[in-house]
Design a protein around this nucleic acid. Sequence first.
DNA 1: ATGACGCGTCATACGCGA
Length: 257
Amino acid sequence: MKIVTFNVNGVRARMDTLIEWLKRTDPEVVALQEIKIQDIDFPSSAFEKIGYHCYLNGQKSFNGVAILTKEEAKLSSKVLPGDNDDKQARFIEVYYKKKRFICIYLPNGNPKDTEKFSYKLGWMDRLNEYCHQALKHEEEIVVLGDFNVIPQYNDCKYPERWTEDALFSHEVRAKFNHLLNLGYLDAIRILDESDSIFTQWDYRDRAWEENNGVRIDHILLSPNAADKLEDSWIDTTLRAQTKPSDHVPVWALLSTT
DNA sequence: ATGACGCGTCATACGCGA
């Protein structure tokens, strides 16, 4: 089962790219972030036409997540518990072929001296609690999306430039490590410990040309799901094409036996 | 310290992202 996560930075702006890419690469489960559109306006028919079912948690202008599946899935939640006042569309979960897929767009959190940062920390606490509870059911769990977390020094080109940033702050990295310590495994790092494997490059300052990127899009696997990991990789080719997202897709191949 | 680039919007300036 080939699965992928991709922050598209606006689904409407990316439609031509997305449809061609899906037809060419043929993933079975697709997690999208920053669709930046209301559910009612989401171009579902274009995806249905190429064989996908669409599960949406969108909102106008900002944020918004979706999961696309080849066969019908069961939508199980659009709410990350723990904050009844949270109106931001950053979470969607489906069951598909006896696996639980949790697609997230974790808050950016900058600037650090604002309520945006405390919202990020609270959101991560809620995610950790949710993922902790989920492990008790002995299901195979896949948590994937844009985490807005640079886990380690070699997940960016210039760590010294990120020390005061919400993506690399000690508190944020500690909470990400807490999630790993629950037993979830980083699908990319299981197979590749090398430097300079990034998933996002700023549009500005020739960041792509100079490979000044960060690794912030992740696929985390519960231990029983990690047992089935056959391959994982980051496909950077889309970033060099016309009118790209600033992020690229992160892939995993899971055995179905 | 600042601004650059791209997307979306109660658009032609601004909020937001990373």
